[in-house]
C-alpha cells in the first residue's frame, strides 16, 4: 500500500539537508542579487558583497569608533540587552504575580479581568506622546515601553493557565486543610513557573520589537538606534550584520530559557512529552 505523506519521515541526513535548504536558498538569492548589482555599480550599498559585510562587522565589533573611542557593537549590545532584560524581568514578575492573583481570586477577577482585556488591546506605539509625558525620553521610557508592550500578553496567558488548573487539585488541597495562601504558594506557583517561561519565550519577539521601536524614537546607543541611524545612509554593510547579531541574541535568549525550563522543571517537560 502507498505510504501516506503524514507517515513519511526523512532520514537523519536528509532531515539535516532539508533544514539547511531554506537558508541556502536565501543565501544563493542574495549572492545572485548582490553580484548583479555590484556588476553595474561597484559601490552599491543596497546588497553589499559578503566581504564588505565582513569588513563592516569587524569595524563595528573590533575597532574603536573615531569619534567616541568606543567599540560600537559592544556598547550597543550592552545598552540594548540592559533595556531588554530589565523590561522582561519587570513584565514577568508583574504578570506572574498579578496573573496568579486574578486567576485564583474571584474578587480580583471581577475587578481586573475586564480592564486587562481592554487595556491589552491598546497598541502602545499609538499613545507614544502620552508615554513620553509620563516616563520622559530616557532609559525609563524605553524599559517602560517594553513592559507595557508585553505584560498584558503574559498576564492574560497566566490567568488562563491558572484557570486551567484541574479543579480536583484545588478541592484536594482544601480537603487537606490548605489555606488560600498555602494553595497559591504550594500548588499554583510551582505549576505556573514553567508556564511563565513558555509565555516569556513567546513574548520575546514582541519585546525585541518594542525595544527597537523605543530606540528609534530617541536614543544615544543601542542596536536599534544604530540600525535606524545607519538606515539614513543605506549602510547595509553594517545593518545586515546587526540584524544577524540581533537574531543570534534572540535565539540564544530563547534557547537559554528553554534550557532553564528543562533543568528547573524536568517534570513539566516530561509531562508535555507524554501528552
Amino acid at each position: 500500500m502507498h505510504r501516506r505523506l503524514i507517515n513519511a519521515y526523512p532520514s537523519r541526513g536528509a532531515s539535516l539537508l532539508l533544514s539547511a535548504l531554506p537558508f541556502l536558498l536565501i543565501l544563493l538569492a542574495y549572492l545572485a542579487g548582490s553580484e548583479a548589482r555590484l556588476a553595474v555599480n561597484p559601490n552599491d550599498k543596497l546588497l553589499p558583497a559578503f566581504s564588505s559585510i565582513g569588513a563592516g562587522f569587524s569595524r563595528m565589533a573590533f575597532e574603536a569608533d573615531k569619534r567616541t573611542g568606543d567599540v560600537l557593537l559592544w556598547v550597543d549590545t550592552a545598552a540594548s540587552l540592559a533595556r531588554l532584560l530589565a523590561g522582561l524581568a519587570i513584565a514577568t514578575v508583574t504578570a506572574g504575580l498579578l496573573g496568579i492573583a486574578v486567576g485564583l481570586l474571584p474578587y480580583m477577577r471581577s475587578t481586573f479581568s475586564g480592564f486587562i482585556a481592554v487595556v491589552a488591546m491598546i497598541p502602545p506605539l499609538s499613545v507614544l506622546p502620552i508615554l513620553f509625558i509620563i516616563f520622559g525620553l530616557g532609559e525609563t521610557a524605553k524599559v517602560a515601553l517594553i513592559v507595557i508592550g508585553i505584560t498584558p500578553m503574559i498576564l492574560r496567558d497566566m490567568i488562563l493557565r491558572v484557570e486551567e488548573l484541574p479543579r480536583e487539585i484545588m478541592v484536594k488541597a482544601q480537603t487537606l486543610g490548605a489555606s488560600t495562601w498555602q494553595i497559591a504558594l504550594r500548588v499554583v506557583v510551582p505549576q505556573m513557573l514553567p508556564r511563565l517561561i513558555d509565555s516569556l519565550r513567546l513574548s520575546l519577539g514582541a519585546a525585541w520589537l518594542f525595544l527597537i521601536a523605543a530606540e528609534a524614537i530617541a536614543s544615544q546607543s543601542g542596536l536599534g538606534y544604530r540600525i535606524f541611524l545607519l538606515r539614513r545612509y543605506l549602510a547595509m554593510d553594517v545593518i545586515l550584520p546587526y540584524v544577524a547579531w540581533i537574531t543570534l541574541l534572540a535565539f540564544l535568549l530563547d534557547y537559554g530559557l528553554r534550557l532553564l525550563q528543562a533543568r528547573a522543571f524536568p517534570w513539566f517537560v516530561e509531562g508535555r512529552k507524554q501528552r
Binding site: A29, A32, G33, S34, A36
Partner: peptide, 10 residues
C-alpha cells in the same frame, strides 16, 4: 534565484 537577481538589478 535568477528572478530575484533580476529584480535586484538597478
Amino acid at each position: 534565484t535568477v528572478a530575484i537577481a533580476g529584480f535586484a538589478a538597478p
